[in-house]
């Protein structure tokens, strides 16, 4: 399942997409520790699989929290959360 967490407001669209099918094959759960803003958590979904999610308290402010990893110049090819996610299950819309 592709879970999109985030929002759209007057300044744009800000979504983090997690391919939760990839979480079920991942043993490292690197996303949890790699994010400086600690926005990820593991949860048991409706089909009893343990998958990554963006914390409910963070979903409506990811533009601000993720800004620290998104410099206007010299942005890395992969953000820390994307690099730590070995199955490459995390994408950012902005």
């Amino acid at each position: 399942m592709i879970a999109n967490y985030g929002y759209k407001d007057g300044s744009g669209e800000f979504y983090i997409s997690i391919d939760t099918d990839k979480c079920t094959t991942c043993s490292e759960k690197g996303c949890l520790e790699s994010c400086p803003g600690q926005i990820f958590e593991m949860m048991v979904d409706d089909w009893d699989d343990e998958v990554a999610a963006v914390k409910a308290s963070e979903r409506n402010k990811i533009k601000m929290t993720c800004a620290a990893c998104k410099p206007t110049t010299g942005r890395p090819e992969l953000l820390p959360c994307q690099a730590a996610c070995k199955p490459r299950g995390i994408t950012h819309s902005w």
Partner: peptide, 18 residues
């Protein structure tokens, strides 16, 4: 929400910011 023929969610997007 996207779902398959059994009604299982394949992707979703929610907006509750405003």
């Amino acid at each position: 929400i996207h779902c398959d023929d059994k009604g299982k969610v394949t992707s979703f997007l929610m907006n509750d910011k405003c």
